[in-house]
Simulated scan of single mutants.
Amino acid sequence: MPHVREHALDGTRGAVAVHEWPHPAPRFLALLAHGYGEHAGRYEELAAVLTGHGAAVYAPDHMGHGRSAGERVLIEDFEDVVTDLHAAADLARAAHPGLPLVLVGHSMGGLVAARYAQRHGAELSALVLSGPVIGAWELPGRLLALDEIPDTPISPASLSRDPAVGAAYAADPLVWHGPMKRPTVEAFARTLETVDRGGDVGGLPLLWLHGDDDRLVPLSGSRVGVERLGGARAAERIFPGARHEVFNETNRAEVFAELVRFLDTALPR
């Protein structure tokens, strides 16, 4: 695995921890946006693939997640998360000026990345969405209709067919294993609408990756959002039998190969 450096940024709601997987002579920058309840440290294998392909990789722990400040999993406004992610991009660009920037967002990070592309798309060379929470995601509406949000944590088995992935997730002290918080669910609902109304990303190259057995963020709901965001220009790869975390799936070598092929096409030569 590549060496990891850690940085601390002044975020919108407190200190933001940023992981950096450096490259001695990068040809592009990769910015990673992780999913709900987890942290950027779970993306070491993806970072290794990207650094092996010539990237310097940067990934913040979102507010209330991982080693960043804030009440656990409390996000009152996803626009703040986008702003923090942009600060991490500024950190990367200051260290490596002039390089193309690729944004990779998974799950909740896909929602953040989609909104980032709407706000700052001119700064990006490519966008990759993995199991993204965009489009017709029904969970917020179901939870907000309840008087009390149930304490039903994410099932580790829903992440990947690889049991080691679920076991590591369940044992990770930086992963949140409690219930969702109402302000966060409300922020999800608002931002889904914001992205839905926010327009497409124009000619920005976009790759959508999804498992067809994703029960946390169903494929059909994300398709609605991807089609609005990327139109007919979006490239997609749906993996039969794969669950929510395609970068941690049993066929992840195939997923990584698809990602690398896309980057070779999308990035300037």
Score class of each variant (00 low, 15 high):
64 G>M: 08
166 G>W: 11
148 E>Q: 15
187 A>Y: 01
216 L>N: 15
34 H>S: 08
117 A>W: 01
5 R>D: 13
223 R>W: 08
186 E>N: 07
83 T>N: 08
52 G>D: 06
113 A>Y: 12
12 T>P: 02
255 V>K: 13
100 P>N: 05
20 E>A: 05
88 A>T: 14
268 P>I: 04
46 L>K: 12
161 R>F: 04
225 G>M: 02
106 H>M: 07
144 L>G: 14
199 G>L: 09
116 Y>A: 06
59 A>E: 03
29 L>W: 06
211 G>S: 11
98 G>A: 05
181 K>T: 07
71 E>H: 05
237 R>A: 09
40 A>Q: 07
20 E>Q: 15
238 I>Q: 01
169 Y>Q: 08
55 A>I: 08
241 G>N: 03
158 S>R: 11
54 G>Q: 06
193 E>Q: 13
103 L>A: 01
49 V>S: 03
43 Y>W: 15
90 D>L: 12
154 I>G: 03
198 G>H: 13
257 A>E: 12
139 L>Y: 06
58 Y>G: 00
60 P>Q: 09
256 F>K: 02
128 V>C: 00
86 H>C: 06
254 E>W: 13
123 E>T: 09
108 M>A: 08
207 L>Q: 06
217 V>C: 11
5 R>H: 12
226 V>R: 02
57 V>R: 01
212 D>S: 13
101 L>I: 01
24 P>G: 11
221 G>D: 03
210 H>I: 05
252 R>L: 01
133 V>W: 09
163 P>C: 10
263 L>R: 00
35 G>S: 05
112 V>D: 04
229 L>M: 05
58 Y>E: 02
218 P>G: 00
173 P>S: 03
10 D>S: 08
114 A>D: 03
109 G>T: 10
150 P>V: 11
190 R>K: 07
233 R>G: 15
247 F>Q: 15
114 A>H: 08
161 R>E: 12
76 E>G: 15
88 A>M: 02
211 G>R: 10
171 A>G: 03
94 A>M: 08
130 S>G: 11
37 G>F: 05
132 P>S: 07
19 H>P: 02
66 G>W: 03
111 L>R: 04
92 A>S: 02
162 D>G: 05
3 H>L: 14
98 G>R: 03
72 R>E: 01
2 P>T: 07
141 G>S: 08
24 P>S: 09
169 Y>N: 02
96 H>A: 04
